[in-house]
Design a protein around this nucleic acid. Structure first.
Lengths: 210, 210
DNA sequence: AGTTGCTCGTGAACACCTTCACAAGCGCTA
DNA sequence: TAGCGCTTGTGAAGGTGTTCACGAGCAACT
């Protein structure tokens, strides 16, 4: 069932990009695609595409290319976008609110099902059809809704505590927007998105060019 | 004056994390820090820290460690956070609004000075003290305010067009939140932040663990 | 001055990733 | 069936990044 074990990290990071590209091709009515074309659309090297796809156990057809639908299914399988993953967003500040209203998750297997905050003034407010609940109720929420992913959008000071709570209630992975390093058990995958960091990296390259 | 040329990408990506950590240490009154301690706080390997810092031309003191203030200054210099970089945010949807209100940029050398959108209904509205202007006015805005960085928070369909416009008015670097691959001239540094992609990557690792 | 304890800087080994280049294979046409 | 054009899959080479391990150097104390 599992297509292949042990796909390199670099490949995994590109699969969502391929997937998005393929969705576009499918919508445009294309049924097959060559590695060269997919590479161009995804902004990478063609050999890389072929090597990446070969890791899935997928096989294209020489002289023709890859079947779009087939590839989509295989990548979806590997990424697990076919199984529904309930998500909680912790921290209903500006960013948390924006994410709650962001619609781009549902088509990729993720569904925001709960919002929490620790500020009493925010409890009870509604965003995108969901009511903000108190962070203290997380254990019950997690149990009732079978929460799979936690998104942290709290200030940096609160993030570690929140991460500990998420792990305690059995969340399977964490996406962290707080600008701080989080310590979690090794078996919990965690990724960070840090806007200020990204800008500073850009700063270096821009700075250097002059 | 420039401390060192050609710092590896991987190192550049970690410098903002070191910087943030050092700011915290300085605030706590620490004057020196060892590579081991900095590594622990930044969530990396100690040897990596030393190798990274040695790229700056920085020198620590054997037996003692690194001087916090000195290191902060050097990293700030390399990243260019000491020069003021005016930023425009294009696309005032949920995410654009959240970023406009986000205060974390200013202390890192970035200042949001303009907001644009192409929806007439949004023009004139205010966020965080700034009035939304029409995207068509970008050339004038860029010239008047000497815009250095463009942040794209439009839907994917509009992103390439916006990127072209940003490049045309002389923006020096681009941060892209739209879920699409952008083509820009090679000399313009660009980075992307894609929330759905991050979740899908997490999905793989979580999926695999079971 | 000598000793001890700590920490940096870096060569070397290793692991991971990317890119090139080409044989192998498929479909189409005659 | 044979030939041609196109595209895949992958071995090999080269590049980048990480980790180890240890010599070198500083400070403190006797």
């Amino acid at each position: 069932m599992a297509p292949e074990r042990d796909i390199p990290d670099a490949t995994v990071a590109r699969l969502p990009v391929y997937r998005r590209t393929l969705v576009g091709l499918a919508a445009a009515g294309e049924t097959t695609v060559s590695s060269a074309r997919l590479a161009e659309l995804a902004g990478v090297n063609a050999a890389k595409v072929r090597k990446d796809l070969s890791r899935l156990g997928t096989y294209g057809v020489r002289g023709v290319g890859y079947e779009v639908e087939n590839l989509l299914m295989q990548i979806g399988e590997v990424l697990g976008v076919n199984v529904d993953a309930p998500v909680v967003i912790v921290g209903m500040g500006n960013l948390g609110q924006a994410l709650a209203r962001y619609g781009g998750f549902s088509t990729r297997g993720f569904r925001v099902v709960a919002l929490t905050d620790s500020d009493p003034k925010k409890i009870g407010k509604k965003f995108a059809g969901l009511t903000i609940q108190h962070q203290d109720d997380l254990p019950k929420i997690a149990k009732d809704l079978d929460i799979s992913v936690g998104i942290i959008t709290t200030p940096a000071e609160a993030a570690q505590q929140v991460a500990d709570e998420l792990v305690a209630v059995g969340v399977g992975s964490i996406l962290n927007f707080a600008p701080t390093v989080l310590n979690v058990p090794a078996h919990i995958p965690i990724r960070k998105v840090d806007l200020a960091t990204e800008l500073q990296i850009l700063g270096y390259y821009q700075h250097r060019a002059s």
